[in-house]
Computed example of a mutant assay.
Amino acid sequence: MTDFSDPSFDLEAYMAPFAARLAEDFVKAELDSKKFLAHYGDFADFLYRPEFDHFLRKEVLFFWDPSGEYLAFLDNDHWPEKHSFNFPGPFYSGESDTCGTGVCQAPSNVMNDEHCCEYVFKQPTTYYEFLCVVNAAAVEVFDSFSSNGNDHWTVQECRTWWRNREHLLSSLANEELVKMNDGQAQLYIDYLNGEAEMDLRRYCYFLENGVYPTSPSLILPEL
């Protein structure tokens, strides 16, 4: 067993293999994102579709990893234990481990609470971000991520969630939570104070109509 308290312990050397693997994952996600764009087209149409969860688990993951060695990491429905800080959308987490790998794998979309449990603070907006979130889900020890949010979120659920925004903003200022992340707390604060409202209204439109709104003339549900 590694003794982290040993004065001679070299943390940088210990972490080097993990850093190298992470760098490889980012490069692969960048390359794969181009393949996904060529194969599936517009990202919003890809992500926001009826039966996205089934589509992802039964088709997309096999396109991502044709070997199919272990692709069951999104098979569990974690809605009953969903982390309340998850931003509404297809992806969310339940009770995760406390390894903090999600922040490393998907720094623009996944963060930790003050106990180092993971949640999705921003739904992916590109194939690259999508693949990073998939990587975060794949390495999470408890398989605590789910992709069936569309089966559970309703417009009313989204409105209720949004009305608790001030509590969430207050929680994001928690010193311990800030320490458990690498700038994600501020990213989430900025998002909630900026583009999040329109993103959530667009998601509510999708929930009501089954298609993602692209025309600026469409009337979006109010929160």
Rank of each mutant, 00 (worst) to 15 (best):
T98A: 12
D97G: 15
Y92W: 13
S33M: 05
E197S: 05
K34H: 13
A137Y: 00
L220T: 02
W161H: 08
N193I: 02
L168Q: 07
F26A: 10
M198Q: 14
K35W: 00
F18S: 09
D97I: 01
I219R: 12
N135H: 08
F52C: 08
M180T: 06
E208F: 13
A196G: 06
V27Q: 10
A173H: 05
N174S: 13
W162G: 14
P66E: 15
R163I: 01
Q186R: 15
F91D: 00
E95K: 15
E175T: 12
G149T: 08
E166C: 02
V60L: 11
P17V: 04
L131F: 14
C117A: 11
F46P: 08
V27R: 13
A106N: 15
W64L: 06
D42C: 12
N148C: 13
S93L: 07
Y119K: 00
F73G: 02
A106I: 12
S96N: 03
Q156M: 10
F46A: 15
P213N: 11
L22D: 09
P221D: 05
T214L: 08
P221V: 07
E12I: 09
N112P: 00
L187E: 09
V155S: 03
L131D: 12
A196E: 08
A20L: 07
G210R: 04
R163Q: 15
P107A: 08
A173T: 08
V139Y: 05
L37E: 15
L71D: 01
C117Y: 02
T98D: 07
E157T: 01
F43D: 05
N76G: 03
H115Y: 13
L71R: 02
N135Q: 12
A23W: 00
T101E: 13
F55E: 07
A19L: 09
Y203Q: 09
H39S: 10
V103T: 09
C116M: 12
N112F: 08
D25V: 05
E176A: 12
